[in-house]
Each structure stands twice: as C-alpha cells, then as structure tokens.
C-alpha cells in the first residue's frame, strides 16, 4: 500500500533526533489521535540550515516527517512556509488516501516550528497569529472520502 519511497523514508528516516539550542521548535498532533510530530529547526540568515524530527506515529507519519526535513533544509523560511501537505506527499510518490492526514501533520509541524522561530526573534507580523493552531483529532482531515 505504500510507495517504495515511503518505505525507504520509513525504514531509513533522515534527520531523526533533536537539535541542541534550536532556533525554532514545533509540535503537532496528540497521542490520542495516534500521531505526534516534533520538528526542530536551526536557522541562520533566514535560511534553514538544519532540521531534525521526532515522531510518534504510523509508517506514513514517520516517512512524511523524514521527507519534510529533506525538503526544507537549505530553503529560506518563506520557501519552507510554502511547502504544503500535497508537496510532501508528492515527493514521496503519493500516500494512500487514508494516510493523507499524516502529510497535514508534516506541513503543520514545519509551520509551527517557524512560528516559534519568528516569535522568539520578534518577527511575527499581524495575521501570523495562528500559522498552526493545535487541532484535535476530529478536526484533522483523515480520509479523502470525508469531504
């Protein structure tokens, strides 16, 4: 059911771990739903120079975490913010419909970590207030056929 790329990122996840003194940290999801993603960022001159993650979740959750760190390293903060759940899923050669929810988590974890970075550095602008609000299980889009 998973693509080879998903299985590759699941079995050999890139950038697992923590960053000591990170510039931004974001945590999304909750244990009740069965997945939590925590993203650590190192940002220099507005460029993401390192990203690490820790994830509690299924194969797709771990693979999307791994892929999203690969996608954002070397990007500017704004470029990283433009990454969507779809681009993460596409980079993994697709996810099963029931697992698209996991790619939302990756997108939100990136946004949440960047929001933390901006807040720490006084870069939050009006309207940035809620880049990634904490959501409950039921609010997260789990299945394609729900819409």
């Amino acid at each position: 059911m998973y693509s080879e790329k998903v299985m590759d990122h699941f079995s050999n996840p890139r950038n697992v771990g923590e960053i000591v003194n990170p510039d931004g940290v974001g945590e999304i999801g909750n244990a009740k739903c069965g997945d939590i993603m925590k993203m650590y960022l190192k940002i220099e001159n507005n460029i993401i120079v390192d990203a690490k993650f820790k994830t509690f979740g299924c194969g797709a959750a771990i693979a999307t975490s791994s892929m999203s760190t690969e996608l954002i390293i070397g990007k500017t903060v704004d470029e990283a913010l433009s990454i969507t759940n779809k681009s993460v899923a596409e980079a993994l050669d697709g996810l099963p419909p029931a697992k698209m929810h996991c790619s939302n988590l990756a997108e939100e974890a990136i946004r949440s970590a960047i929001e933390d970075y901006k807040r720490k550095n006084g870069l939050l602008e009006d309207g940035d207030g809620c880049i990634a609000c904490g959501r409950r299980c039921d609010d997260i889009h789990h299945h394609e056929d729900e819409d």
């Binding site: 299985m7 699941f10 079995s11 739903c33 069965g34 997945d35 509690f56 979740g57 299924c58 194969g59 797709a60 959750a61 771990i62 697992k99």
Partner: peptide, 24 residues
C-alpha cells in the same frame, strides 16, 4: 510511546507477520 502500524512494518521487514489494534 510507539504506534502499532510502525511496529508491524518493521517486524514485516524482518519477516515476522503480526497484527495490531491501532487506528492506522
């Protein structure tokens, strides 16, 4: 602290077939 589907996938990679009651 871990999720069942991940556990099953990793066991499968080692040739062990089992099941789980996780949502996934």
């Amino acid at each position: 602290f871990i999720e069942g589907e991940s556990l099953l996938l990793m066991l499968d990679m080692k040739g062990i077939a089992a099941s789980s009651g996780s949502a996934c």
